[in-house]
Structure formats: C-alpha cells, structure tokens
Design a protein around this nucleic acid. Structure first.
Ligand code: ZN
Ligand code: ZN
Ligand code: ZN
Ligand code: ZN
Length: 621
DNA sequence: GACCTTGTCGCCCTCTGCTGGGAAGAG
DNA sequence: ACTCTTCCCAGCAGAGGGCGACAAGGTC
C-alpha cells in the first residue's frame, strides 16, 4: 500500500455508521482492507449527539491543536489515534496507539447511529511526516473486532477544519499533514459522548488511511486495515506507510502493550481472539462437543481435567479452599473469593447506576435492575402472574398446586412458605413455653423468654416493700406493696361507684349514669331526622330508624315450634316477645313454646320488611 | 496442563410488608 | 342482639443474600 494521502477541503473526523457487512463476511486477518467513502455533504455539529446517557466533552484549542477534554473519570470504548507514518528514510515518531492513556490524548468524536460506541479518540501527532494514516484501537471486550472492521468512518467536515496550510495541501492534492488538526476557535463544539463505563481490555488495532477521493469531488476515502496479525517489535525499524512497515514501527512508549510481541489468533466461528495459540486451541474445543473426561461416579463428562476434578470433589466433599476467617471451605477458589466478599470483605463490584444498590455478583445486579424496569420474564402458565426471577415463580406455583412443604413440628400444620411457618411456630412456642408461677401471688409468667430475669422483674416490681405508702385511687386505703395495692383497687372494679342523686340507681360506669339521669330530666338529645321522634340513647334512635325508615330492614322472626307463630325475639329465660299474629302483645311463654303451644325456639329470616308478617313491635322497645 | 479468575445459571434461603378472613371483644 | 373495631394469623409476593456447580479464558 502506498503512502497515505489525505486531502479534502477541510480536516475530517469520523462518524461511525452501521456495519454494512455481515460479520461472517469479515475478512479474517491480515492486510484486507475495507474502503469506505463519504461524500462531501456537510453535517451539522448538532448531529453530534449520541443517544443514551451522555456527558459533554468540551472542545479546546491547545497550542495549535484542538483537543476535547474528557471528564477525568470518563471511560471510553473506542480509541482513535493518528499515527504518522514516516517515509522510508524517516524514523517514525512514537506510536500513539499504544499509549493507552486517554486523558492525554486528543480526541475526535464520532456518532453512533446504530448503537455503536460513539467516541473515537484521536491523537494528534506532530507533523513529522508527509504520509499519514490513522490507527484505531478498540477495546475488544465491548466492541468485537469484526463489528468495527466494517464500520464506515464518515468525515465530519463541519466539526473541524484544516488549517490554512492544510487547505493548501489539500487543494494541491499533495500529501496532507494535518489530518487531525483543528482550526482554533472555528468551531468549538460541545460534544457529547456516550457515557459507557468499561474496564480496560486488550486493544485491537486498525490502520486507517485517508486520501482524496475522485478528482474534483469533495470527498475523502478512508481505508481501514487490520493490524492485528502483524507483529510489533520492541525495537522496530523505520516505518513505511504500508501496514507491514507500520508494524515494525519503533514504539517509544513504555507501555505494557509496547513491550511484548503479539499476534492475534481469531476464531472463525465466533468473536474470540487470543494472542496465544494455546488459548486459541483450547477455545476451539469449545466449538465441539468433545468432553473426554468422565466422572466415574455419575458418568457426567467434562471438557477438562480440572472441571472433572472439581466435579469429583463435589461427590467426595473435598473442599481444598478454606476461608481464613470462618469455617467455610469450598471446591474452587472462585467460590471462596465470592464467599469472602459476601461474608467478610463486603466488596461489591457491581453497582446500580440508578440507585445505591451494589452486589457481589453480576446476576444479582441484573435481578435488581428488574426492580427498576419492572421486567417480569417468568410467566405463570396457569394465571396472569409473572415474576422477576425464577424462584418467585416456583414459589407462586405452590398456590396452584397446593403444595405445602413446610410443616410445624408442634401442631403439624403445613405452610407454603417457610417464613409463614416460622411465625406460626413462634406463636406455638409462646403457648407452650414453661411458665413461671409467682410464689407470692397467682401471677403466671409465660412466653418465649421466661427466665430468671423476667421472674425477677415481677418480684421486684410487685412484691418488694416500698417505704412510701401508696394510696388507692378510689378510697383512702394505703399499701406498701404494689401487688396489694393493685389487688385492692381491683375490688373497686365491680363496685357500682356511680350513684344517682334522684333515686337508688347505681352503676359502674359514668356514661351509664349519664343516660340514667336523662330519665329524671326528660332530656332526649337524639332526634330522628325523618319523623322528629326523640331518644335518650343513640342506639335507640338507630334501632328506630332502621325499623321505620329503612326499607332494607329485615327483622328476625322467631317461630314458635309448636304453633308456628312468629315472634320478634327469643328471650333466653323462656320468653318470646310476640310479633305479628299476636297483635303486638307481649306474651309470656314457657320454654316449650307460646301459650297456645309447647316447644323450643326457632328463628328464620322474613323475606323483606314489606312482605314480613311481623309488625313492628313498639311496646317492647 | 495446572492454577487462577471471571462469569453465569440455578437453587434456596431469609427478611419484609401487604392483605383478607375470622375470632374476640367492646360498644 | 347487633355492630363495629381490633387483633391474630395464614397466605403470598417483593427484594436481596448466599452458595453449588459449571464454563471459559488468562497466565505460568
Ligand atoms: Zn459425578
Ligand atoms: Zn469465611
Ligand atoms: Zn438500583
Ligand atoms: Zn399462577
């Protein structure tokens, strides 16, 4: 490949568009190139808005370069950096793509139209070469290589513009030097990036070349090449503009990536890539069903010896990984780590972005997120219920099956949930615990916590001698023991302490006396709103209203078992109060029946008040 | 290949809170 | 006798903690 030329009316940055080649068609490795074009139609800077949660990047111009400075905490997904490939006799400057320090880099923002990551980083290099290209590094984990390879990189001319010098170069069709150079102050855009957090992973590299498009057209052609299969030497020779030469560029950055030689092996069946052939080979076995290692105890087969050994340990109970802080032990180190996070370190690496929840395991966060989204993937096949996790659905299914797996050991009652049974058992224990009988009184202390403490409290509170005499609330009696006082006061309870001033009537409660006094004063404070009749008691008014003004009122009929006549009420002493058929009279009857018969009581409901044979029985009220 | 780490799925558990029916007691 | 209120309790769902088991990749 020849030296890359960059041309065009302005500087250029890239807009990622949708992959337009199916992943399966993506060239596997090497120097295959994807050439994409973009016409020169301008795009408004306002389009530089990524969807989703966003954080603005402010464009700045620093000493002739425009850079977009991210917030320090930003993590980004793609990195786009310029690499200035020198001519054959010019030693290449350092390669920015290995720097892996985004905060130091100059960035270029691209927009994702199709959910692709929305930011590329672009590193501005000094203009040391007439031949330039771009290298893109991709954090593999979040953005599979194949997906990137086929992306279209569109130039956004409005965003950036070439310096005057560059314009000249472009106009002349000569080699451009300032691919990433931005005109100071020309368009300082507030750019927005997708705020997606990720951990740093191995990077993938592409070579992007820019050169003028068809003659006379406002067009730039970007050529994207894969660099992954090339080796990068620690001490490369001078570079050329083709990939092979780029691959041997001296890398002066002291980074991890720069210090090692790497080669990428890529699975043809999935997105997996690895720099190690051993990992690659092992990975390829995952695409087969080959499981040569079989458990002699249960005949289950495994892919690796390690998996088999762990499995056999579950049979034998062998748990080599013991927790240093408790007695727990585990089959695998991972289980131990997780246990320690749950029980000892409380480290919770997975945090909810919507609330303060954090979890030890990703699956727990996933489950938690459903409480925000309301998603209920587990649908009951018998009713409309759907749950957010499988366990709740399983638990719910017991309501259909009637299964009650939990049994009370005290009364053998069964329950669908353990918690329900637990509460029940606690209740039973309260009933069955040993009781404490106070030696000084009839008090019996029972409950779950019968103890010396509790009985001691009883003795101290009730049976200790008090120097100060305690007076009864109702009379002049005095006591030095609280228990004696309380017992005495109880004797006042059944006393008819309220005595009528006008007659001999006495009662226990003041409210009863209030009502009674009205029989002397004639006061009837409760007035019927429908007939102006007045009552001394509210209850009497209520009864009146129902009987005479409520059409829904259904009186109870007590039938005389002997003669079948209806009575409004049964009096336990053997009196039936006559209802209809007895002319509204009060009739004294024997237990066996009314005077015209003999027998016991019976009661039925009359169909309606209107149809009832009963007549309101005023005399008995 | 061994060891380790990371990730995933599934299972079971606890704690918690709401609800409705029924018994008991008060009014 | 009736009504109303309160309490109890079983039923049930929401949310989260913890572990078992396994798969797969990185590294030595
Ligand atoms: Zn087995
Ligand atoms: Zn422990
Ligand atoms: Zn949350
Ligand atoms: Zn259901």
């Amino acid at each position: 490949m020849a030296a890359t030329e960059v041309s065009g009316p302005s500087a250029q940055f890239t807009k990622i568009k949708k992959p337009d080649v199916p992943l399966a068609q993506v060239p596997e490795q090497g120097m295959q190139e994807e050439t994409v074009r973009r016409s020169g139609s301008p795009q408004g800077a306002s389009e530089l808005q990524a969807e989703g949660s966003c954080r603005p990047l402010q464009a700045k111009h620093l000493e002739g370069e425009l850079s977009l400075v991210p917030a320090p905490s930003e993590k980004h997904i793609l990195t786009l950096q310029t690499v200035h490939l020198a001519s054959e006799d010019v030693e290449m400057p350092e390669l920015g793509w290995l720097s892996a320090q985004p905060a130091e880099e100059v960035q270029v923002v691209v927009q994702a139209d199709s959910g692709l990551p929305s930011l590329l980083w672009l590193r501005e290099e000094p203009q040391q070469s007439a031949q330039q290209c771009l290298a893109i590094s991709v954090q593999e984990e979040l953005f599979p290589l194949q997906g990137v390879e086929v992306m279209q990189f569109h130039l956004l001319e409005e965003n950036v513009s070439a310096t005057g010098e560059e314009r000249q170069l472009a106009a002349s069709g000569a080699q451009s030097t300032g691919l990433t150079k931005l005109e100071k102050g020309e368009e300082e855009e507030q750019l927005v990036v997708e705020n997606r957090s990720t951990e740093s992973t191995e990077e993938q590299f592409f070579l992007v070349e820019a050169r003028p498009g068809d003659e006379g057209k406002d067009e730039i052609v970007l050529t994207i090449s894969n660099l992954n299969v090339e080796e990068q030497q620690d001490k490369p020779a001078s570079g050329q503009a083709d990939v092979e030469k780029a691959s041997s560029i001296k890398n002066q950055r002291k980074t991890k990536a720069a210090k090692r030689t790497f080669r990428t092996f890529r699975c043809s069946a999935c997105v997996f890539t690895s720099s190690r052939v051993s990992s690659f080979n092992r990975h390829m076995k995952t695409h087969t069903s080959e499981k040569p290692h079989m458990c002699h105890l249960c005949l289950k087969a495994f892919r690796t010896v390690t998996l088999l050994r762990n499995h056999v340990n579950t049979h034998t109970g062998t748990r080599p990984y013991k927790c240093g802080d408790c007695d727990m032990a585990f089959v695998t180190s991972g289980e131990l780590v997780r246990h320690r996070r749950y029980r000892h370190t409380h480290e919770k690496p997975f945090s909810c972005s919507l609330c303060k929840y954090a979890s030890v395991e990703a699956s727990k966060l996933k489950r938690h997120i459903r409480s925000h989204t309301g998603e209920r993937p587990f649908q009951c096949r018998l009713c409309s219920y759907a749950s957010k996790d499988s366990y709740k659905l399983k638990r719910h299914m017991r309501t259909h099956s009637g299964e009650k797996p939990y049994e009370c050991h005290v009364c053998h009652a069964r329950f669908t949930q353990s918690g329900t049974m637990k509460i029940h058992v606690l209740q039973k224990q309260r009933e069955n615990v040993p009781k404490y009988q106070c030696p000084h009184c009839a008090t019996i202390i029972s409950g779950v916590a019968v103890s010396a403490t509790l009985s001691g409290v009883h003795l101290r509170n009730l049976h200790t001698y008090k120097a100060t005499e305690m007076r009864c609330r109702y009379c002049s009696a005095g006591f030095h023991e609280r228990y004696a006082l309380i017992q005495h006061q109880k004797t006042h309870r059944n006393e008819k302490r309220f005595k009528c001033q006008h007659c001999s009537y006495a009662c226990k409660q003041e409210r009863h006396m209030t009502v009674h006094v009205r029989t002397h004063t004639g006061e009837k404070p409760f007035e019927c709103l429908s007939c102006d009749k007045r009552f001394r008691q509210k209850q009497l008014l209520n009864v009146h209203f129902r009987k005479y003004h409520d059409s829904d009122f259904i009186p109870t009929v007590h039938k005389c078992p002997k003669c079948g006549k209806g009575f409004s009420r049964w009096v336990s002493g053997g009196l039936l109060t006559a209802a209809s058929g007895h002319g509204g009279q009060v009739l004294l009857v024997t237990q066996g029946g009314c005077p015209g018969s003999a027998g016991g009581p019976d009661s039925t409901r009359a169909p309606t008040a209107a149809q009832s044979p009963l007549r309101p029985f005023q005399a008995c009220l």
